[in-house]
Design a protein around this nucleic acid. Structure first.
Lengths: 237, 237
DNA sequence: ACCTGAACACCGTTCAAGT
DNA sequence: ACCTGAACACCGTTCAAGT
């Protein structure tokens, strides 16, 4: 019924010698995500990088969500499979958590993907590793799920925040220190009556160490786990 | 250059008597999000519900992100402003956290919005309320930021997971118990050598109480905070 | 000042057609 | 079996034009 659109000139004719494959697609997706953030991953951009048409990708990958989860899982596997020296369960959990933090820091898009893929492969990988250490710690069976999911939820929260911060900074062309300055300034301009606490810590924001704070949070939870056996009684005041 | 598209017949002519306003738009957005999830909020759907054109909304709202944050903040305000009976700081934090959980449960889209709006109004509201209680608890100044952000990150992690689960369930037309069954089954079919822990807790998944688990995680962190003064030394084994 | 709605520049996804 | 790329059904956003 309509024949209005002009035919665009064919963009490309050369095919890359190596043929398309699920793995090559996932690698290219990771590159794209690392270079230009979550918004940078597009079937068109991806197919251009792979010298094909958008439709070709669908032969190997179900849809965008599948692609994102697969990319996230590929990074996750590298992170979680890193050999960890024998150490106490608590030390191993710390190492595991720091590995996660570094992966998230290097690939901020992992944060939102990890959260959107709740319960799927990438998250189960960490859950499993943490769970094994929680068992080794001697946490009773009926407290294991609670304990592990507290750690996991905390890690995912940090991951999500990190992804959001990175995206915000990218969108406004800010580096990390400019971003923290902007946030700190915004907080210190809040109404003193309504936001006394936020104002009081606005200064700390500018100088804080994300990685150290992250680990401190893990230690807080580990401390709570340690306390499970000893002070179940005096939860009163 | 092209005049190919047929003019679609005008959809609407009646204007609603009450005029458009930022608040009316935000209320309609919340309705839409509650009814049909994150994917349901569209400028076209929204303008249809408000009996206007998509462009009209932009007179009152900067863009979609602004709209989402405003909608999230509106719900957040109701949640956080609920009067809380005088109680110990720990009890108040628990009540606050449970209020958050219930809000997230009633409006799952809050989860992803809250995370994407890291550092902005909606998150600062909770941060402030938690922070005041942390102060009241007597946590030393230099540990306040760490402590509050641990609690906040944990809450946001749960919020994000909840949003993801709700979206997954909606997409596959599952109710909560069907969703848990599917997850539990998937986990119990994992490779026993690689995923002993995930398999072992698959059963618990089916019957667990989200709300109780959430609170247990809060208590774990509160326990860690309580321990801050007492056992800074023996972190060894 | 506020609203209208066609138009623009994108998306993810499909599918007839090719090899 | 695998790839091509035009086409479809959407998006968020803009903007000349109206009141």
């Amino acid at each position: 019924m309509s024949r209005c659109d002009m035919v665009k000139k064919a963009r490309r004719s050369q095919r890359r010698p190596d043929s398309l494959s699920r793995d090559r697609i996932i690698d290219a997706a990771i590159e794209l995500l690392d270079e230009s953030g979550e918004g940078g991953l597009t079937f068109r951009a991806l197919s251009e990088r792979l010298s094909t048409g958008p439709g070709a990708i669908y032969w190997h990958i179900a849809n965008k969500s599948d692609l994102l989860v697969a990319a996230c899982d590929a990074v996750m596997t590298r992170t979680v499979d890193a050999r960890i020296a024998d150490a106490s369960p608590e030390a191993t959990i710390r190492t595991l958590a720091l590995g996660m933090f570094d992966a998230i820091d290097a690939h901020p898009w992992i944060g939102s993907t990890l959260i959107h893929a709740a319960g799927q492969q990438p998250a189960v990988r960490i859950l499993e590793r943490i769970g094994q250490q929680i068992r080794a710690l001697g946490v009773p069976d009926d407290a294991q799920w609670t304990t592990v999911s507290a750690l996991l939820n905390y890690i995912l929260g940090v991951a999500g925040q990190n992804a959001a911060n990175a995206q915000f900074a990218r969108m406004h062309d800010l580096d990390r220190s400019n971003f923290l300055d902007a946030l700190s300034t915004a907080w210190s301009e809040l109404d003193p009556d309504q936001y006394p606490f936020a104002r009081s810590i606005a200064g700390q924001m500018r100088v804080h160490d994300d990685r150290a704070d992250f680990l401190a949070g893990i230690d807080l939870i580990l401390g709570g786990i340690r306390g499970l056996r000893t002070d179940r009684i005096d939860q009163g005041a």
